[in-house]
């Protein structure tokens, strides 16, 4: 990790992109890195695409809270694809969910790489729809290496530990989701 890594996560309200951003940046902070996260917000309480702007650096203080172009953009719905492609340039890895229909023509043409991952499907069929955002988190972590898997697990523990205590299976499912998310990107990067 040379300079800072810039990540834009975009999805529908309820898909959990803001909590992914929060967990990742908290984990990075715990590792002693510099992290900055800002959500988009507006007048409407609901609706609209939710975007999280995340930046993580080894030591250097982060510059402006929002950025023009990201190293990695994750789009989790058709509207999110449209809203987030403005953050793409030739250095950007653009990741979107395979299940999004009819966006082929809207995908950014200038990206370094465009990856379709079956995160929604994996969460639904192999795990539980509830851990969809943790699958996404795994994908982000593998693509950016901004924090270690251990630290990510610790951050999950900090956030959801009280729930894990009541239901240890939940912990296992979250860990599996994280691992599956990482695999999804690893598979594509090799292939």
């Amino acid at each position: 990790m040379a300079n800072e890594v810039k990540i834009a996560l975009a999805g529908e309200g309820g898909q959990g992109v803001q909590s992914v951003a929060e967990i990742i940046t908290e984990a990075a902070n715990e590792e002693g890195k510099e992290a900055l996260y800002i959500p988009n917000f507006g007048v409407e309480q609901r609706g609209g695409v939710s975007i999280a702007f995340v930046q993580i650096a080894e030591k250097q203080k982060i510059g402006s809270p929002k950025f023009e172009k990201a190293d990695i953009v994750i789009a989790l719905s058709d509207r999110a694809v449209l809203r987030s492609r403005q953050y793409v340039d030739e250095r950007t890895v653009f990741v979107y969910d395979k299940s999004i229909q009819g966006v082929e023509d809207d995908l950014p043409k200038n990206a370094k790489q465009v990856l379709a991952i079956p995160a929604i499907e994996v969460a639904k069929n192999e795990l539980h729809p509830r851990v969809f955002n943790i699958v996404i988190m795994g994908a982000v972590l593998h693509a950016t290496r901004v924090v270690s898997e251990e630290q990510a697990k610790q951050a999950l523990e900090n956030k959801l530990g009280y729930k894990f205590e009541q239901n240890p299976e939940l912990r296992e499912m979250n860990h599996k989701a994280l691992a599956r998310g990482m695999e999804l990107v690893a598979g594509l990067a090799q292939g």
Binding site: N29, E34, A35, L36, Y37, P65
Partner: peptide
């Protein structure tokens, strides 16, 4: 608003 809503250390 940015300083209000952003998180950093």
């Amino acid at each position: 608003g940015y300083q209000a809503k952003m998180r950093e250390s």
